[in-house]
Design a protein around this nucleic acid. Structure first.
Lengths: 221, 221
DNA sequence: ACTGACACGTGACAC
DNA sequence: TGTGTCACGTGTCAG
């Protein structure tokens, strides 16, 4: 009667020392169970579970060594602390990337029209440039823009680990017809090309080497 | 006979639905166990364990949402991934703080004698300066050092978010008796005072405001 | 004696 | 069919 309380139809019990198998508190003689099969089936099962636990606990121990004071922490408390530190570091990375201008690991030339009316000029172009810093690169860029009769009216720059991020706003020195979309496109394109030519000249030796190995400051997805 | 394989002296078994208690596969009638006590003892125990698991799994679920692609991960794999990301972010922070010179959030003036024989000079002073950057601050420092007949022979500087970190090595322009410990102490002290006076002049308006609010890039202990 | 934390063996479910 | 993962109840030890 009481035996029906057990949900499992056929329960064998493998004792703690794994020496012998005893009858579980179940309905015996049910369906003619093959004991030998079940025996090592259970053995394999418990052993697999044992290995699984070992892997998880191994990682948890690793986390213990990573988190300050984690040695003497509860398992749950440890995980909570891991979450805290993870978010903390993530916030740092986010701050570094969002709040400030930080040179990226990949070279980049972005040239786009500024929203009209900004900077008090009828038309302006915003440039975002990221590359390895080289002496003379900036003056070369300035020369190129001069040749296009363009003027830098605002610039913000950051360097980090030899790399450079340079955002600047440029306007045309000459009066032009900025209503002409075709002309604006050509202007943007020529700026892009000018910058590319400068970068190619300065960075060609590196690019041949292929991909870069530097670590990037990454935020989760 | 087979019952002796069980290590536990008195085993009660609480069934899955927590409706009724059945006899475990143990030696019954041993020592006259008080059943009622054991019943809710077991109930409390299993329930406590249930809550414990819930806490742990709750944190693990949180980690799942933090790690990209963690939703579909194995528990062990997830923890492994957590470790990877933790070390990755930690390495980023370490790189930012150790590998490069990054301005700290707190102002700092460090002046100390350089180990002898370095830089090819018999005596040199290493200065580490960290503060808000202000135009004219550097030339003021230079003037102050000039007044002390000191010369900057090497300098490394970084700026980040308006703050400045400036490490430089200075030597005395005049031949002095560097064996005199008292003189060396005075020299170091005067350099420190000179820098402090410059910073006080430039930063006094900010210091009145009190503590700063900026986040600092922190590494684990 | 009681509470909390851990490892274990086991049933169940999935591919 | 196995092979792997998970939650559960339990035994056990420490504070």
């Amino acid at each position: 009667m009481e035996m029906e309380a057990f949900a499992s139809p056929s329960s064998l019990v493998l004792d703690r020392e794994r020496k012998e198998v005893v009858e579980g508190p179940c309905k015996l003689e049910q369906k003619g169970v093959c004991y030998e099969r079940s025996i090592d089936a259970l053995r394999n099962h418990s052993e697999a579970e044992r290995k699984r636990r070992a892997r998880i606990n191994s990682h948890i121990d690793t986390l213990r060594s990573v988190i300050p004071g984690g040695k003497k922490m509860d398992k749950a408390t440890l995980l909570a602390e891991v979450i805290v530190h993870l978010k903390e570091l993530k916030a740092n990375a986010a701050q570094a990337c969002e709040g400030l201008m930080i040179p990226k690991d990949n070279d980049e030339i972005k040239v786009e029209e500024q929203e009209s009316g900004l900077n008090g000029f009828p038309y302006s172009i915003r440039v975002s440039l990221c590359c390895e810093y080289k002496p003379g690169l900036l003056s070369d860029i300035r020369q190129q823009l001069d040749a296009l009769h363009l003027m830098i009216i605002r610039t913000e720059m950051a360097t980090l680990g030899g790399r450079m991020q340079n955002d600047f706003v440029i306007i045309s020195c000459k009066e032009q017809n900025f209503e002409d979309a075709e002309y604006r496109y050509l202007l943007v394109d020529s700026v892009h090309e000018a910058l590319r030519s400068v970068l190619d000249r300065f960075l060609v030796s590196e690019d041949i080497l292929g991909t870069r190995k530097r670590r990037r400051i990454s935020i989760f997805s």
